[in-house]
């Protein structure tokens, strides 16, 4: 004889099983009243800078198309290129330009720039310097300028904070600000994420570092470069030039779900999400 509890359990199990079989309708090949032919699953792997905005874009798309699953993973920009190139992921995400070496290794890569992101030089708010010239930035990060007094500040040692080798943000900073042949001093404190850079720069007197626009907050001071403040408006009108693309890469032209998702990102709704997340729209 069944006790009431067991009966209830059995009933709910049956209900669950029934629901499990019926869902999702798209994948069951339901061609009846559904006009949405999209379904299936894709994986996006790569840059930790792109990851947060990609997750929001994936969530918004899944709401519009309930039969689709878009899984977003981190790992880093280089991992994004390799994963897409080798076919381990449907889409790779990369927070920098694709290098010639990477195109040589994976000639079929197709790049989709979904947003742009500025890189700001930030300092400890206790430093009474509001701006630097690009040459001063190069001098400081390469280790030839070591005291704030050399750039118009007080007699205070400069503590350089940087991302680790291989980081997309570091790669973009080196390319956009330091240029060829200038290396970040080996004495720089290295931190492995944008968040750790923020904490270290805000907590260390005399510290200087660099951050993605999306991570700027009042605990650090964003410095003007050659007189131009690092704001989304200045980046959008082209006066602030340390701007990098946020890319998705696919192996060959994307089709199916990947195509639909990328088209969604380029739509007005998708670009509105990009701007909401603190990045610059690619539609100008």
């Amino acid at each position: 004889m069944m006790t009431p509890v067991k009966a209830l359990l059995a009933a709910s199990m049956t209900a669950l099983l029934a629901a499990g079989c019926g869902n999702p309708p798209d994948r069951a090949g339901d061609t009846g009243d559904s006009t949405d032919s999209l379904g299936g699953e894709i994986t996006v792997v790569g840059s930790t800078t792109v990851q947060p905005v990609a997750e929001v874009l994936a969530g918004a798309f899944e709401e519009l198309h309930p039969g689709c699953v878009i899984t977003v993973q981190g790992g880093g920009s280089s991992v994004g290129v390799t994963s897409a190139g080798q076919g381990a992921a449907d889409i790779g995400s990369v927070s920098r330009d694709i290098s010639p070496g990477e195109f040589a290794e994976f000639p079929g890569l197709v790049v989709h720039t979904i947003a742009r992101d500025g890189i700001a030089v930030v300092a400890d708010p206790g430093v009474p310097v509001d701006g630097l010239t690009i040459d001063q930035v190069r001098g400081i990060f390469s280790g030839s300028i070591t005291n704030w007094s050399a750039v118009g500040g007080p007699d205070m040692p400069i503590v350089v904070v940087s991302r680790e080798e291989g980081s997309g943000t570091r790669g973009a900073f080196e390319e956009l600000m330091l240029g060829e042949g200038v290396q970040i001093s080996s004495g720089a404190i290295l931190q492995a994420s944008n968040g750790a850079i923020l904490t270290t720069v805000s907590g260390t007197p005399g510290a200087i570092g660099y951050l993605s626009f999306g991570y700027l907050d009042p605990s650090v001071k964003a410095l003007s470069i050659d007189g131009v403040a690092p704001t989304p408006a200045n980046a959008a009108n082209g006066t602030y030039t340390a701007v990098r693309p946020l890319n998705l890469v696919t192996s060959g032209d994307p089709d199916g779900l990947a195509r639909a998702w990328i088209d969604f990102i380029y739509s007005a709704d998708g670009q509105a999400i990009v701007v909401e997340q603190g990045y610059l729209s690619v539609n100008g």
Partner: peptide, 21 residues
């Protein structure tokens, strides 16, 4: 002086490393 440990070398760079790195 600042420094880096062997363990830290792996942990800090692994997530972005490919190929020979």
């Amino acid at each position: 002086s600042r420094a880096r440990t062997l363990t830290g070398n792996i942990a800090v760079e692994m997530s972005y490393a490919t190929g020979l790195h």
